[in-house]
Amino acid sequence: MELTTLWFVLIAVLWIGYLVLEGFDFGVGMLMALLAQNDRERRLLLNTIGPVWDANEVWLLVAGGATFAAFPEWYATLFSGFYLPLLLILLALIVRVVGIEFRSKRPDPAWKRWCDLAIITGSFVPAVLWGVALANIVRGVPIDASGEYVGSFWDLLGPYALLGGLVTLTVFLVHGAFFVALKTTGPIRERALSFGLRVGLVAGALVTAFVAWTVSLDASTVTVLLAATVLLAYVFAGVNALARRDGWAFAGTAVAIGLLVVLMFVSLFPDVMPSSLDPAWSLTTENASATPYTLRIMSWVALVFTPLVLMYQGWSYWVFRRRIGVHHIPA
């Protein structure tokens, strides 16, 4: 395999890691508005992701850094072109971090309301906008001969992109709900399962439309098969949620999100950012990449350290594997 292809795959892997992991963090953040009925339950929800959300967010930093290192042109065009959506995402992520970390630092209810608002908004905004951004990458945006994005903010809000935003929004809600079901005991677990199933119907319809549209952009045996497995994984999650097997339900949405990213990257390849103006102006794994020397160094670093990261991050999930209920939340 070419090094550039390998790094295209690795960037996809980093996005899978990010969206599967922070996907449920965003879901849990949004559910603080939709599922919790009182302060104690909001805290319960927040504490299901307490020990892990920060490391989940690092996947984004590594995805960004790896794109910078492996495909500088992609990084430059993407980040300068998608300026305002990324600005909104940054602002949302900032207030979200502050809300999570500072919520319990003062006892007054007004403070907690502000922090809840920060966490909830900070979870909704990126949950929508990551879908919009990724769909735009797949669909193609106006890029000129010099590799510059020449569209406006409104060009990023086409129907396919908006559908992508709704898909990530609803799928993260379901994913988050199944995560809550997996990590809690008591009445909130039941509510999470039934919420996940109800929203899952809407999400399922949106996912079906989105994968069908994606396949129509780049129809091949592989994309059709991938689209089918996305839906299969999704149905698998629903069936298991109905049977109250929340671990399997959560695994189902995790796999569905991962495969959705695979589908998008497969239909993208060998482009990394297609130009909607002229295919000859598209950024590809070749014309956007770093030198083979840099890619070789990065490959060794990734080869040595990624397994290590996966091991200790996995261990931290193992340490905090026990379910928690409202009775675990200290006064």
């Binding site: 307490g50 020990p51 892990v52 920060d54 490391a55 967010e57 690092v58 930093l61 590594v62 960004g64 850094g65 790896a66 794109t67 910078f68 290192a69 492996a70 495909f71 500088p72 042109e73 990084y75 430059a76 770093a290 030198t291 840099t294 160094i297 990065m298 670093v301 990734a302 350290f305 990624t306 990261v309 200790y312 991050q313 931290s316």
Partner: peptide
């Protein structure tokens, strides 16, 4: 990017994962 990106990416992979996971 070809020079500057690598230390940035390695910072994330080596340092930020350690920091965030073990602080959690």
């Amino acid at each position: 990017g070809d020079v500057f990106g690598a230390p940035l990416a390695i910072e994330g992979l080596l340092a930020f994962f350690l920091e965030s996971t073990f602080l959690g």
